[in-house]
Design a protein around this nucleic acid. Structure first.
Lengths: 343, 343
DNA sequence: CTGAAAGCGCTTACAG
DNA sequence: CTGAAAGCGCTTACAG
């Protein structure tokens, strides 16, 4: 039913090797035979079979994007943006692109290596991996080219693409301090998340740079969940009525915090200023609009794929394995600005 | 470097046929040899090569999800939800899942059929296709199992999954009328979009059922874009100051309309009531919150994949090719409710 | 510029 | 319960 290379060869009166050459862009084929072959191919609706091609050539490489816990958060398009970025890169490259979803459960059933072997994958970009996931341990010592988004691992075969989370957090908190906030709480994600660690470090660094003592009780963890952030914010503000600003490690949590503040009869930014992280779409549509640290996930995805191909193609030094994408603070309405007093 | 079936067979002291049987779950293998093979396979880190499997077996089927114009709208997670749904179905099926993005441009370069042949695809789910796209014409007469989301085509090999757009629009407009709105504008998407046509039909039907004459000037098209909706709304309301409600064919456009109304110094829902469509996340976070027709895109994706496998496996009658997913109106703050006057 | 032949890693009747 | 052998649709030296 479906035309194969053999039929094309027969109809065109040539060998399959010649047909193959035409379809692989070799130049050593007579112009006329080439034209004839193309014509026949078109007529027979022929297109090379990928499976056969992959099998016989050792060349055809395929890059996978693995999204962890795709059973995702409807509130954020971040995974989709990463997907778009990786896809865009592979489009204009020679790599095939495939997409898979995984989960902590699935990772227990099948090792990372097995999964990649099975699917003939020569390199993978992973997004959403947690440091408690089985894959994480395996990737630390894998020899399979891998690029992690947001997670750093010490392995020459594994690269990382992310923004400079520490610097970004530093800037955000520094901005609060320069606007006369000295009692600043932090709603962080999870102690186990790489980005949380960096963002907290940036928070601490900014306070220290301004000679503000870090109050450990001001730092709370809400696991990146809106509802947990809601309750934690209420608690935090009830226990520490001197807090005037909150730095949140994600917009989702910032939105939960805003809701808590409103429900407490307080006002953003009048009573409490808030900065979020990620700049998801909601940040611009919520009232008041949310100041946030933006990261370009599409670009992160694109660069991840680019870095991956570099790792596949050449041995790289560890130092080249880390690609930092610029971040940008989007200033909106949720922070009360004010000249710093000389107290 | 990578173990093949041959090496496993050699180490385990059996033939490759036996190894193959074990990995394909055939029962006619001695328990002990099976255990031994599995043990060796594990030790050698063996996993079957998909390309070879696909090539030699005529069984391995792969289903593709093609997202059109993935160069997407950051404001909506709908494509991601569809992806998740299709992915979830293929997970628990015997089908392999692959994902591709396309665009009007790419469709011009390579036909639908060629694309599918090349990638060894036995069936495809397409989302985001426009009736002006090259694929659309081709799919009308393809014999390749295909499921379109939101678009109906008369071809036994092509199925459709969608909500009942006409009924949903009818309900929404009927709800407005029952709350005493008689001058209702519609911000529609595009005259060429299948869903737009159905939603407009529902709008007209609701008015007619209530003996309200349709004023053609009340129906405007904003191409599903927020900014166009913004301008069109201003125009519409300036020209027709008697309008008290707007039915929008998407939340994005509804949000543009809300902004326009605010900028005109009017109030939602005090002066103008609004209903949107899709129930994207923004609808719940915007002020006032937006009443909207919700469609479960994850479920639509899942059912699309399910329908596709049915089409692949059996000849179906045209009448069975259309799967309708339930919709639901989410009542929120953007509609002013009021008892209908007996005028 | 062209073709014969080996081989990629599997599956699947078929024979035993 | 097990294995020898043909074949899936290609690519790639190699010879001419």
């Amino acid at each position: 039913m479906r035309a194969t290379i053999r039929e094309v060869a027969k109809v065109a009166g040539v060998s399959i090797a010649t047909v193959s050459k035409v379809f692989n862009g070799y130049s050593d084929v007579n112009h006329e035979t080439k034209e004839r072959i193309l014509e026949v191919a078109k007529q027979l609706d022929y297109a090379p079979n990928m499976a056969a091609r992959t099998l016989s050539s050792k060349k055809q490489q395929t890059i996978a994007l693995i999204l962890n816990e795709l059973n995702f958060n409807r509130k954020s398009t971040m995974p989709l943006e990463v997907l778009d970025g990786v896809h865009e890169f592979t489009e204009q490259s020679d790599y095939e692109f495939v997409f898979y979803g995984t989960s902590t459960e699935k990772q227990k059933d099948k090792t990372f290596r097995q999964f990649c072997y099975e699917h003939n994958i020569s390199g993978v970009v992973i997004q959403g991996l947690k440091m408690t996931d089985p894959y994480y341990q395996e990737i630390r010592e894998t020899n399979l080219p891998t690029v992690l988004i947001d997670i750093v691992v010490d392995n020459p075969k594994v690269g990382t693409v992310a923004i400079d989370n520490e610097a970004a957090a530093y800037e955000a908190v520094d901005y609060l301090i320069r606007n006369n906030h000295h009692k600043i709480g932090m709603i962080n994600g999870s102690r186990n998340a790489n980005v949380s660690i960096f963002r907290e470090a940036g928070y601490r660094k900014a306070l220290e740079r301004h000679h503000i003592v870090v109050n450990e009780e001001y730092i709370q963890y809400a696991n990146y969940e809106e509802d947990i952030a809601y309750f934690i914010t209420k608690n935090l503000l009830n226990n520490h009525s001197d807090i005037t600003a909150l730095f949140c490690a994600s917009d989702i949590m910032a939105i939960g915090a805003m809701r808590a503040i409103k429900d407490m009869g307080k006002n953003v930014p009048g009573d409490i200023s808030i900065i979020g992280f990620d700049d998801i779409v909601l940040a611009s549509y919520v009232t008041p609009t949310l100041t946030s640290v933006a990261q370009d996930m599409q670009k992160i995805g694109y660069e991840a794929a680019a870095l991956l191909t570099d790792i596949i193609n050449k041995e790289m030094k560890d130092t080249e394995n880390f690609r930092i994408i610029p971040h940008e603070i989007k200033y909106r309405e949720s922070v009360k600005e004010g000249i710093k007093n000389a107290d």
